[in-house]
Write a protein that binds this DNA or RNA. Sequence first.
DNA 1: AATGTTAATTTGTCTTACAAATTAAAAACA
DNA 2: TGTTTTTAATTTGTAAGACAAATTAACATT
Lengths: 239, 239
Amino acid sequence: MTTSAFEPIKRDNLSRQIADQLRRAIVDGELRADDRLPTEDELALRFSVSRPTIREALKILAAQNLIRSKRGPTGGTFINCPSVNDLSESLTCATTLLVGMDAFNMDEILQARELLELQCCRLAAPNRTEAHLERMRQQLAIQRDSSLSAEDFCASDVALHRTLADASGNRLLGFVMFSVIEALQPVTNMVAHRFRDRALVSTQHQRLIEALEQQDADGACAIVTEQIRDLRQHLGADC
Amino acid sequence: MTTSAFEPIKRDNLSRQIADQLRRAIVDGELRADDRLPTEDELALRFSVSRPTIREALKILAAQNLIRSKRGPTGGTFINCPSVNDLSESLTCATTLLVGMDAFNMDEILQARELLELQCCRLAAPNRTEAHLERMRQQLAIQRDSSLSAEDFCASDVALHRTLADASGNRLLGFVMFSVIEALQPVTNMVAHRFRDRALVSTQHQRLIEALEQQDADGACAIVTEQIRDLRQHLGADC
DNA sequence: AATGTTAATTTGTCTTACAAATTAAAAACA
DNA sequence: TGTTTTTAATTTGTAAGACAAATTAACATT
C-alpha cells in the first residue's frame, strides 16, 4: 500500500454536501428557475441517504430562498427565481446583526450611508419620475401627522429614503443603499426618540422633494448632507 | 359568535416558525454569541414538536451562519458571531445569482461598480497603509507572469481591487463594494478571455498603486474610471 | 352537464432507533 | 501515587417507517 494519495476523508455533514451540490447546479445554470427537482424520495435514492437528510439539505436551500415546495401531485420542490426583495431582506438582517455586534462603528456606517445616498441623489435628480415624487409626497404627508408614533415616523422616514434609492434608476445601487439605511434604522429610531426634531426633518424632506422636482442635484445633495450631519451630531453627543 | 376578529390561521411550516423565533431571539440580543442553545431533545419538548422538525429549523439558521453544532457532552448548538466574511460570501453568492438572472442589467452593474469604487478610491488615497500597498504590489507581480491562466489573472485582479476596498478604511463600504465586484467576476472573466489586454491592465494597476503611494486621489480615480470605461467598451461591443 | 367523491401523489411531521463523536469519570496498570 | 486505558454518558448525525395534510385528477352521482 502506498502512503501517497490518501483519499481526502470527507466526513462533513451529508446534508451540507447535498445542499452544496444542488446549489452549484443552480448557480451554474444546470437547474433553471421554476424547474422541478425530483421528489424527496427519489433524491434520497439518488444520493443514497434517508429522506430526513434530504429534507435538511432542502431546508438549507430554502433558507436562502433558492427553492420553494408545494404539496400534492403537481407539487414538489421548485427552483426559485431569487427576487431583489428577498435578497435585500436577508442582507438587511445580516447587516443588522453585524451592526449590533459592532463589526462596524458608527463613523463607518454614517460615512457609508452618506456616500451611497449622495450618489443615489445625483442619479435621482435627472431620473426621478412623477411616480417617485408622488410616493415621497405621500410619505411626507404621513410624517406631518403629529399623532404618529416615533416608530411609525421612522418607518415613513425609511420609506421615503427608499424611494430616493429607487429613483436613482440603478437597482443595484438602490438595493445596496437601502440595505445600509435599513440596517441603521434601530439606531436612527433611538435618536429619533430622544433628540430628533420631527418638524425639522419634515422640512428637510419637503426641500428634498422640491429639489428633485426641479432636478436640482446639488440642492438635493446639500439636504442629504445636512441630514447626515444632524444624525452625526446627535449620535456623537449621545454615545 | 362574532364574525370579526378571526384569528389568522397560521399553518406555516413549523420548522420555519421555530427558526424565525430563534432568529428573533438572536437578532434582539436575547441570545448572544457563543451562547449554547438547549439540546435538540429539549427544544423538541419546549416547542412540542419532534426532533427532526427542530433539526430542520436549526438547519435554516445554520444556512445563515447563525449557529454551529458540535457533538459530544460538551457539544450542542451555539450562537455564531457572524463574520463580515461570511456575510460577504452569501451576499456575493446571492448577487451572482441575481446578475445571472438579469435582475440587473450591465449598465447598472458597471455604474454601481464605478461609483462605489471611486468612493473607495477617494478614501483609500489618504487612508492606505504600507501593508495595503504591499499587497497590491504582490498581486501586480502575479499579474505580470505571462504563464498565468486567464482565471488566475482575473482572480488576482479581483484580489487587487479588494485590497483597494480594504484600504478605504471603511469596512462597510469596502464590504459592499467588494461584493459587487466579485459578483461581476464571471462576466469580467469572459471579457478578459476574449478582449482584455493584460499588459494594459497591469500598467493601469501599476499607475494606480503609484497614485496611492503619493496619496493622489484624483490620479487614482482617473485610472479606475479608465478601467471601467474599457470594460464598458468591451461589453458594449460584445453583447 | 354540473357537482360531489374518491383515490393518488407529494410534502410535512412524528416516532423510534442506532451511529458517531467527544468528554469525563472510572478502572487498570506501572 | 501517577499515568494510561477503558468505559460510560451525552449530544448531534443519520436512518427507516408511518401517518397527516394538501392538492389534483379522475371518477361517480344526481
